[in-house]
Write a protein that binds this DNA or RNA. Structure first.
Length: 831
DNA sequence: CTGAAAAAAACTCCTTTGGGCGAG
DNA sequence: TCTCGCCCTTTGGAGTTTTTTTCA
């Protein structure tokens, strides 16, 4: 068998492989789409193509080594080489479903849990590329927002653009996680472990694997391991770097795509080779170190600080303005400051969109050259390792790139480092579950780190990140994971107090009086936790919501009886035309007589344009009024507020139903309308009235009557409907009879004329066996309504396959209608 | 260079008790 | 003649957050 044959077979039978877990439809379309673009190639051609694409990997490593490796693998054809990575369909049953876009497309789906997958070689290999291979960039398309976005030049971004940025941010995160999961699975491979284990010096391996009696010694052993790896591995470059947001529409793909997106591998073996070579990017260094740890039997996690492009707009304007100005002045775009991509800066006179886009790119690029001598290796890497130390009973952070052990906070990059932003740190464990461990690696979780992440939409809103992690985390966490979570929460709670004034704003734990919202008060103003610039710091728990009397009423609470002093006064604001008129009149009346608020204004002598606010502790549950002597209480508007079910007057019952008020009136039962809320339109407030309130003793009576009335109304409607049905039947049948008679009298000419429309048409009764109505020619006069009604019923019963009963022609008529319509092509409308 | 504060812009959410007219 | 229900119209401005600008 020649290699060409093999390839041909692969190509023709499988074509490009499909993504596992994707829907059949998507897979099918993809297959066909790619099938057109990928011709069957001879082996040589494929090698060249792959060689180019694998330029990073293939340099120093020849086939020999790869083949050596092969010798160790049993059960595989010796011909299988690195370049012939398609495998053999005969040996690899998963071949046809393996994945050629593995680093990007394999977004984990909840259905496929790692444990459920067989831990076979295919499991670790499945992400490898196979078949004739062509790089297809993943393109993610979002709906374009409406164009009519009005925008003042040079200002912040629009809502739509913010949304797009967030979407891109989220998508990027998912891609990075998918990539991390892929690498994590690769380094779980038994083959990888076999190689890894052979590298570790005996004394180090035994030291690490030994069960230690002392926490310090345990950490020391890990330290030795990390230092050994740091010394034996040559870091050739940085890993994945953070990329600023750039609008591709404006700056172009070239500018938007960063040069360094980390070291890419298309298959596990390429990564595995680095194990033998012991060189690579810092990402690879950490990934391989994690593999080594796992091969030693340690419980090791691969940890990644996800470098998703930011969605925040954070730029000092000076830089933007400066670079923008320079760009417009110098046409060459060359600058000693090294703003090599300045040409992306659009002219200031350009569209609003363009001038806005200036923002991120030049800013970030302008900064980068400032740290050219900056030793990247001094910065923390993006990947590292965590090992669960049994004696310490906690996860120990190991940075194999710098040889740092148990210093989680050292993994946080400097604020000045633009290529490494710590916002999401996830740990991939051996079971390919993902844990969010960010809080372990930041000392400013609340004030800084959290704000770099996508926020939930409101307090109870959709939390994208939480939802995403819920899919990826272990659904049944182990004991150590529970301990870890408690530890992380503890770290969050004991985070030190902010030092910046602004950071107290909306802080979950602390509060300043200056940041209180309009409807917030401090109560009690104790304890004072500290001071900042002379301002007292209170616990957030002292911040209480306050509301007006009316607003409390909406929540079924009323101000406590007795002398209650409002905790706060705010300026009132007329919300309706009616109120505005009142206020204007009051203003016109002059300052001589200001209307005082009789209810609670006297205590402080405030004017009517002030609104008193109360805290919850000043309120009590609403006490509904009583129904006295069968008379329902009512408010000033002749109605009763029933915002919640608790507000129904005592001794009364809330009856809902349209037109029920009329029934109560006819019965002579006292009732009031129930106001359940308000609608606002044209600056007018309109009460929403739902049902009535009647004395409970009359409720049954009213309800019975109401049921009677509605039943009667239903009957009436039914009767009417039935009459209409019969009328139409009558018309139809008369038409049929007439037609028959005409046919009889004047022959086939008529039929020919109507054939086009009518040849499929069958009169409803004609095909029935027993002719209560009779054949058309038998019916010389119009059928009675009864006859027709029975005929209608009969017709329907034929269709339904049952005969006999049924006193509701209306019920039958609808299927009948449907049937007739289907047969005759319509023309028999029924409401 | 950083942080505070003000300014500006964008966005969110609160506001709290009809009236005319036709059908039945 | 009375009652019911449909339909009319579709704000606006304060509060809050975000971003930009200014200043110490």
């Amino acid at each position: 068998m020649s290699e060409d044959d093999s390839d041909f077979q692969n190509s023709s039978t499988s074509g490009p492989s499909i993504v596992e877990g994707s829907t059949g439809k998507a897979a099918g379309s993809k297959r066909s789409a790619l099938g057109k673009t990928i011709p069957v190639k001879p082996k040589k051609q494929k090698q060249e193509e792959k060689g180019d694409l694998l330029a990073v990997d293939d340099g120093a490593i020849g086939m020999d080594q790869e083949n050596d490796e092969k010798q160790q693998e049993s059960g595989h054809d010796a011909e299988e080489s690195d370049l012939d990575d398609v495998g053999d369909p005969e040996f690899n049953p998963d071949y046809y479903s393996s994945d050629d876009d593995q680093e990007w497309v394999e977004v984990p789906v909840p259905e496929v849990l790692p444990q459920q997958e067989a831990a076979t070689d295919e499991y670790y290999e499945e992400e490898e590329l196979s078949g004739p291979w062509q790089y297809n960039a993943v393109e993610i398309v979002f709906d374009k927002p409406p164009e009519d976005v009005k925008k003042t030049p040079g200002r912040g971004i629009t809502k739509e653009e913010r949304m797009i940025r967030v979407l891109i941010h989220q998508t990027h995160l998912l891609c990075l996680i998918a990539n991390g999961l892929c690498r994590n699975r690769w380094i779980n491979s038994p083959k990888m472990h076999t190689v890894a284990l052979s590298l570790v010096p005996e004394h180090i391996a035994s030291s690490v694997q030994k069960v230690h009696d002392n926490p310090v010694r345990e950490v020391n052993a890990l330290q030795v391991l990390a230092l050994w790896w740091k010394d034996s591995f040559v870091v050739t470059g940085p890993g994945i770097e953070s990329v600023p947001y750039a609008d591709i529409d404006v700056v172009g793909v070239e500018a938007a795509m960063p040069a360094n997106r980390g070291e890419s591998f298309k298959k596990r073996k390429n990564l595995q080779r680095r194990l033998l070579n012991r060189n690579g990017s810092s990402d690879v260094c950490s990934q391989l170190f994690t593999a080594i740890c796992r091969s030693l039997g340690l419980k090791a996690r691969l940890v990644e600080s996800l470098q998703a492009c930011t969605f925040k707009v954070t730029l000092p304007k000076d830089e933007t303005v400066k670079s923008g100005a320079e760009a417009s002045k110098s046409t060459t775009g060359s600058s000693k400051k090294g703003k090599k991509k300045k040409e992306v800066v659009l002219d200031e006179s350009d569209t609003t969109r363009g001038s806005r886009q200036v923002i991120s790119t030049p800013h970030r690029l302008a900064k980068r050259p400032k740290l050219p001598p900056h030793n990247k290796l001094a910065d923390p890497p993006v990947f590292w390792t965590e090992i669960y130390a049994e004696v310490n009973q906690k996860w120990i952070t190991i940075d194999p790139v710098r040889g740092v052990v148990n210093c989680p906070l050292k993994m946080h990059p400097a604020a000045s480092c633009t290529t490494n932003n710590l916002a999401y740190v996830v740990a991939y464990d051996e079971d390919n579950y993902v844990t969010d461990v960010t809080r372990r690696y930041t000392s400013q979780w609340t004030t800084v780190t959290k704000k770099l992440r996508v926020q939930p939409a409101g307090p109870a809103g959709f939390d994208w990140w939480a939802q995403t992690m819920a899919v990826l985390t272990n659904p049944s966490p182990s004991v150590e994971e529970d301990i870890e979570e408690a530890e992380l929460q503890q770290a969050e709670a004991s985070e030190r107090m902010p030092t910046k004034l602004g950071d107290f704003n909306n802080h979950p734990i602390y509060a300043l009086e200056r940041h209180l919202k309009k409807f917030e008060v401090l109560h009690p103003k104790l304890p004072v936790l500290g001071h900042i610039r002379g301002e007292a710091i209170y616990p957030r728990s002292c911040v209480k919501q306050v509301r007006s009397k009316e607003n409390w009423l909406k929540r079924a609470r009323q101000i406590k009886s007795g002398e209650v002093i409002p905790i706060k006064w705010i300026k009132s604001r007329p919300a309706t035309i009616f109120q505005m008129r009142l206020q204007q009149q009051a203003a016109l009346a002059g300052g001589n007589k200001m209307e005082t608020d009789d209810d609670q204004g006297e205590a402080s002598g405030e004017n009517g344009d002030q609104v008193a606010l109360f805290g919850e502790w000043q309120t009590e549950p609403y006490q509904p009024p009583w129904v006295v002597d069968g008379r329902v209480p009512r408010n000033d508007y002749g109605r009763q507020d029933v915002f919640t079910p608790d507000m129904v007057p005592i001794g009364g019952t809330h009856l809902k139903g349209r037109g029920i008020g009329r029934v109560a009136r006819q019965l002579g039962v006292d009732f009031v309308e129930a106001v359940t809320g308000f609608e606002f339109q044209s600056r007018r407030s309109v009460p929403i009235i739902q049902g009535i309130i009647v004395p409970t003793e009359s409720a049954e009576l009213v309800m019975d009557a109401y049921r009677e009335v509605t039943h009667h109304a239903d009957q009436e409607a039914l009767k009417k409907k039935r009459a209409e049905v019969l009328r139409r039947w009558r018309k139809l049948i008369k038409g049929v009879v007439l037609r028959s008679r005409l046919m009889e009298e004047y022959g086939e000419d008529m039929a020919v004329d109507e054939d086009d429309e009518r040849d499929n048409w069958v009169p409803p009764e004609d095909d029935d066996d027993d002719d209560e109505v009779g054949r058309p020619q038998d019916v010389s006069s119009s059928p009675t309504t009864d006859d027709v009604g029975r005929a209608a019923g009969k017709r329907r019963l034929v269709g339904a396959g049952s005969e006999g009963e049924g006193e509701e022609p209306e019920d039958r008529s609808e299927p009948t209608q449907a049937h007739v319509e289907a047969d005759s092509g319509g023309g028999f409308m029924f409401d």
